[in-house]
Each structure stands twice: as C-alpha cells, then as structure tokens.
Amino acid sequence: MDLHLSGKTAVVTGGSKGIGLAVVRTLLAEGMRVVTGSRSLTPELKETGALHVPVDLSTADGATTLVDQALAELGGIDLLVNNVGVGDTDDVAQGALLNVLDLPDSAWEHTFALHFYSALRVSRAALPSLVERRGTIVNVSSAGARVVSAGPADYNVSKAALNALTKVFAEQFGPSGVRAVTVSPGPVRTGVWTDPDGLIARIAREQGVPHEVLAERLLSSLSPSTGRLSTPEEVARLIAFVASPSNITGSEYLIDGGVVKSA
C-alpha cells in the first residue's frame, strides 16, 4: 500500500528510542526525509541516518531550536509527530507511587512541560510551514488519558490535555489545510516496561517485588483483550497511516490491545 509519503518531510520529537525510534525508521522506509530532536543520540538512531538535533524539549528554547534546524535542513515541514515523553524515570515514578495529596507541584510542572507544552511549542513553531504545505500533526498520547489506572496520574492528565489540544489544532487550522490526529498507545514493549532501570522496574523495587512479577501483574490488571503489549513498530505503522493524505482530522486512534473497553 502506497501511503504517498515519499519525498515529504517529517519532524519527530523523541526519536532516540522506543516508539519515536520506530517512527523514524518507518517514515524513512516510506521515503520521507526525517529530522528528530531528543536529548541524546543513541547508536540505534544514528544508524537510521536521520538528522538528530540535540535539544531538551521540556524547554521553550528546545522547541524553537528543533524547528529552526529542521526548516534549515528540510526547507519545510509536511509532518510533525509529537512523540517525546517519559523523560527522567524517577520523575515519572513519583506520579505512579504518590497520590495527588503528596505529588508536588514540581512533578506536575515537569510532566506537563515534557508531555503537553513540548507539543504545544513545537507545533506552534512548525505551524507556519505546516500551513504552507497543508501538513499534518500527529500527537502521540496514551490510553491512560481514558484509563487512569494505566499510568502515573500527572502523566495521564497531561495526555488528556494533549488530546484536547489535537482537537484545537484540527478546528483552528483545518480551514488552512492542516490536519491533526491523536494516536493513543496502551502498554507498549519499550524500556518503560522492559529495561532493568525503567519505570516498571523502579516501581517494582519500591514495592519489593521482582520486576517481571510486577510487569505481569500490571498487564493483567489492564486486561488487554489481546493479552499482550503492543510493539513500537505497530504504533509506528499506525502513525504512518494517519499521516498519509486523507480527510481524517480531530480524531483519536487507540492502539491498546483492547485495554479501553468503552467507546
């Protein structure tokens, strides 16, 4: 199936690992030119040949630096994938271990800076080019925006805000030819679940249980209909599909294995 992406340009935030890395690889395979921004350049990302811009996307300067360098390299932006997330694992773990009475403002502020404000700022910087090219914004959210047990509280709330932002972009810039779509993964086989120093492993240590035991327990509590984690490549293929030319905008696409049971 030809997705009609060949020759077009893309900016992907958080492309160094996990879902972002899979998105970079998938878009390159579709013939796109890709720029990605993240704090670190991993060997896996370097191997893709995508242009990496070292930036901290939780800051306003990081957002403008990424877009400025992407425009200089690409000449214009056809697709923006706002994917960056999780960041420092200790910060995210706070939201999973503490309730709202104990979770400090600093945790909420950091989480919103990375998961909401990064998307707002990068999109705002890219929108003139996206309008010129009648481009597309894909915001990578989370099933946790609907199922609060699926992740840290501050993370889930920031993703719910991101879902609303997608609809604002779709409504305000649809007349200018820009589409905006949300892709919401459920649990995905990334370092969050599998790394010995990832989020699930750190929570397991705090609770005094083996990593693999807690991972199995959490997956069972989420009760995915498929009984398994999604893969980064599956999420990336969905992102490539919604990025292909269509009349889809303002919509949310879940890829959660059936964690969310209601419409």
Rank of each mutant, 00 (worst) to 15 (best):
R179K: 02
V168S: 15
N163E: 15
A126Y: 02
K8L: 10
A93P: 06
N163A: 09
L165R: 13
D91W: 10
L21A: 12
L79E: 02
L218C: 01
L45C: 05
P128Q: 01
H115I: 07
G14A: 03
L229S: 03
L219C: 10
K261R: 13
S225W: 00
A125T: 11
V81H: 11
D105W: 14
I19M: 07
V122D: 12
G87R: 06
P104G: 04
P54Q: 10
T231I: 05
S220I: 01
S118H: 14
L74F: 07
L130G: 09
P210K: 07
V140L: 13
A263W: 12
G144Q: 00
G87A: 05
R146C: 02
D102Q: 13
G250V: 10
V11N: 12
P128M: 06
T136M: 01
L130C: 10
W193H: 11
R33H: 06
D195K: 08
E30T: 09
E171S: 14
T166Y: 11
L165A: 10
Y155S: 04
E206C: 09
Q207W: 14
V259W: 01
A93G: 04
A107R: 12
P196S: 11
K261F: 04
R189P: 00
N83A: 01
T136S: 14
L103W: 01
D88T: 11
